[in-house]
Amino acid sequence: MHAHITRFGPLLFIVLAAVLPLAFASGYQLFQLTLVVAYALSVLGLNLVTGYNGQVSLGHGAFYAVGAYVTAIMMDRWDVPYWATLPVSAVVCAVFGFLLGMPALRLGGVYLALTTFALAVAVPQLLKYKLIDGWTGGVQGITIIKPDAPYDLPLTSDQWVYLFSLAVGVLMFALASNLVHGRIGRAMVAIRDQPIAAEAMGIDIARFKTLTFATSAMFTGIGGSLAAIAVQFVSPDSFTVALSVTFFVGMVIGGAASIWGAVFGALFIEFVPNIADHLSKAAPGAIYGVILIAFMFLAPGGIASLLRRWFARLAVK
């Protein structure tokens, strides 16, 4: 039973995720689900570096912003088709992550958390900076046009963007899954848990960490690109430090060092604040805080580990 769940579970999940919303979801719900895909990729990126590699980043909102702006600028300035912006966004974010990671990762531990936190706080200011506002549109931001379905497919624009994002998401998740379950993933975990042994095994820790950080930035950047396409708008104040913290919350609550954890985390950060917002403006933050601390104490492995335990119990029965 358990083996079947692991083998066919993802496939079933993908089919259901593609078909059900097309049949039942409204335009707004499709938009929300598209954001879930974007968040899932971003949280996945953070998960690679923080969950698997043990390097705490509090600034992945910055890479999300870079991805979003790369897509928006290319679509707005040069009329590049939306899908063609994704590879560029991936490369730009990876380079950006590499450059930032180099100094901070040499020292490891809490230094990266500090540096990335500072980056997250600075992002809106940097985006508004007047020397680049010819590109970024300054405070106004950039408005882009939502793509329609190609080849006269009988799909609304919302449906198409969702399907497109889902396809990109599935591809990236498969990539990440292969990465973490292979040799590279073992090295990432070894660096997190047994740094001295990893070094003795001949792993160049600093280089490896920096490359992991760059890869992670790439995933999150693609998430940002998808979000920009779905939202049709980017502006500096959508990328505050709160966004980075939200990704961190999603990663921890979904489950650090778990591929599926990123999906659960994304669902959590998309839907829980919407519900909590009805209570009061302060509620989402308070709920995030309380749940975050509760998870650290009761289930450090997040929702993914809770579900794993639950499945294991089912399999035994």
Partner: peptide, 13 residues
């Protein structure tokens, strides 16, 4: 870090 960020969010809210 998770606990510190949790406290940050909580106190702020």
């Amino acid at each position: 870090v998770g606990v510190f960020i949790g406290m940050l969010l909580m106190f702020n809210s």
